[in-house]
């Protein structure tokens, strides 16, 4: 068995494994009942902290990645000015025309 039937069989096994996993999860959950409230508490070295205080600040999400990849620079190029955008299009078109005319 090769190619797509094999891929289909792999998917069926994947689903089967997922289904078995769910059955175990459901049985365990049924056995232990509702989650204990203690489990939801956050351990912060004895301090009482609300869950929302421990959220990752959304402004700093991927801060280092953004800094390293200089994405802000890319963003600055998107000035929102139509003439800038038209310039990009004309430059792109010029390259396409030049390359295709030379090589046609």
């Amino acid at each position: 068995m090769t190619g797509y039937p094999l891929a289909n069989a792999a998917y069926v096994f994947f689903l089967l494994a997922l289904g078995i996993g769910f059955v175990f999860y459901w049985k365990e959950k049924k056995k232990t009942g509702e989650r204990e409230s203690e489990k939801n508490k956050i351990y912060a070295c004895g301090e009482d902290m609300k869950p929302e205080e421990l959220n990752i600040p959304s402004e700093t999400f991927y801060r280092n990645l953004i800094k390293i990849l200089k994405i802000e620079k890319l963003r600055e190029w998107h000035t929102g000015v139509l003439s800038d955008y038209l310039l990009w299009i004309f430059l792109g078109m010029a390259v396409l025309v030049f390359v295709l005319v030379i090589t046609w």
Partner: peptide
């Protein structure tokens, strides 16, 4: 070749490919 480049540029703009995506 020029004609094809012009048509392809137009279609790239419609597809939103960089640098025709603004």
């Amino acid at each position: 070749g020029t004609a094809l480049a012009l048509i392809i540029t137009g279609m790239f703009i419609k597809s939103g490919l960089v640098p025709f995506h603004a």
